[in-house]
Design a protein around this nucleic acid. Structure first.
Ligand SMILES: [Mn+2]
Ligand SMILES: [Mn+2]
Ligand SMILES: [Mn+2]
Ligand SMILES: [Mn+2]
Lengths: 218, 218
DNA sequence: ACAAATATTTAGATTTGCCTAAATTTTAAT
DNA sequence: ATTAAAATTTAGGCAAATCTAAATATTTGT
């Protein structure tokens, strides 16, 4: 597969929402930042190559084979993101663009060894699950921290309230996007939470928790 | 620069032997495993882009700017080779093909952080010098081990005698291609050498030393 | 049900990188 | 100094990936 074909396969995969639903030409065009006519050409080619099923005017989805390719690409992309953050100290939001390039490097050995070097991580720095070599992985869902069950853990991926006071609070408590958070205990009385962030245990109000998004894999 | 343009720049650089001498179309074609007519097309384009000087029927060389690009590519290629060997336990002779892909990843930050992760290495696993961020590096020469001055060190890059007994000797003494070797002392009487390999000091005859190639950077 | 709006495909061009075959230039040999 | 050989360039074409504009199909609103 060429670099471009690989990016189309990933786009179709992501737009298919994990379930392998039919995706429209325009959706792919928007995702790929190209024109619909270019997409038509490409999905015809992918269809001929046996990685996609294309029905004129109806849309496109991946074949079994196409799905395997997509999972390998997603695996490589996310492993590289972990590498960039864990080993090269890139920030949470700097890694995607570089991983978009690195995911196309062709060497199964490289992928496997990288996986090992990183300690077989299960999620990338954005909290998204990393498919195993055989293509299995857990689904991720985004939840407000106050709706996460006690004992569960996830990755901090966003805020609902982005006001200065709230962001300042997060900063003071050393909570940042990309941090792993575990819910230790929930107080019945006021719904406040004891959570663990970066090894430290802190206590936050329910109101705070109601404005922090966590990505958790079940 | 596109991937292809970058590979041509590297080819012209390497064929120019470090000194920036004029390189012929046929030489580039052979190096790049393409046809001379394709090379003519490409070097015209590189010339228009200001990275090469092309004179019809006379050959091509890099401009100042082209040389800088070449050094950056060589730097990236060799850093990735060190990464593959040191961090991912690739063998000496498995890294080139993968590095040929990785060298094209565009991120200055990535290169710099990789350099740091690896401890600012000065040579790659083949004993070739790694240009610094500013493009400086030492020249490497290949010498028989018995001609290397006392105190110097280099990388084992080949054998002159490839007979079974000799290779068996190397194996028994845990000397392998890619190993760093330092000459500790030379016996006046028989020209035998005390050398350090992988932290261990061993004693070898002049005859052995006369059949082992070392790459050393001065 | 049918016109209007939207989505999709087709037709025709462009750029990049490569190829083969033919023409031209340079180099080597007599 | 010619001629033969080798190197190089030009001409013409092809496949990939993209684009614009025009044609066609589908969906939506009344
Ligand atoms: Mn990403
Ligand atoms: Mn990509
Ligand atoms: Mn190499
Ligand atoms: Mn390369």
């Amino acid at each position: 597969m060429t670099l471009s074909e690989e990016d189309y396969i990933k786009a179709i995969y992501h737009l298919g929402k994990g379930e392998n639903s039919m995706v429209s030409t325009n959706e792919v065009a928007e995702q790929m930042r190209t024109k619909p006519s270019s997409v038509t050409d490409m999905i015809k080619k992918l269809s001929e190559k046996g990685v996609a099923n294309y029905r004129k005017y109806k849309g496109v989805c991946l074949t079994e084979h196409g799905q395997k390719l997509a999972l390998t690409l997603v695996r490589k992309h996310r492993l590289w993101e972990v590498f960039l953050v864990d080993k090269l100290n890139f920030a949470w939001d700097e890694v995607h663009e570089v991983a978009e390039q690195l995911e196309h490097i062709k060497s199964e050995k490289l992928t496997d060894r990288l996986d090992k070097l990183l300690g077989y991580p299960e999620v990338d720095p954005h909290g998204d699950p990393i498919p195993s070599k055989t293509g299995e992985f857990k689904k991720a869902v985004k939840k407000l921290l106050n709706e996460v069950p006690v004992g569960a853990s996830g990755t901090c991926v966003g805020v609902k309230d982005s006001s200065a006071p709230f962001l300042k609070f997060l900063d003071k408590n050393k909570i940042a996007l990309g941090d792993a958070i575990t819910v230790l205990e929930k107080e019945e009385f006021d719904g406040s939470l004891h959570i663990e962030v970066k090894g430290k245990s802190i206590h936050i109000s329910n109101q705070i928790a109601a404005n922090l998004y966590l990505k958790i894999t079940e």
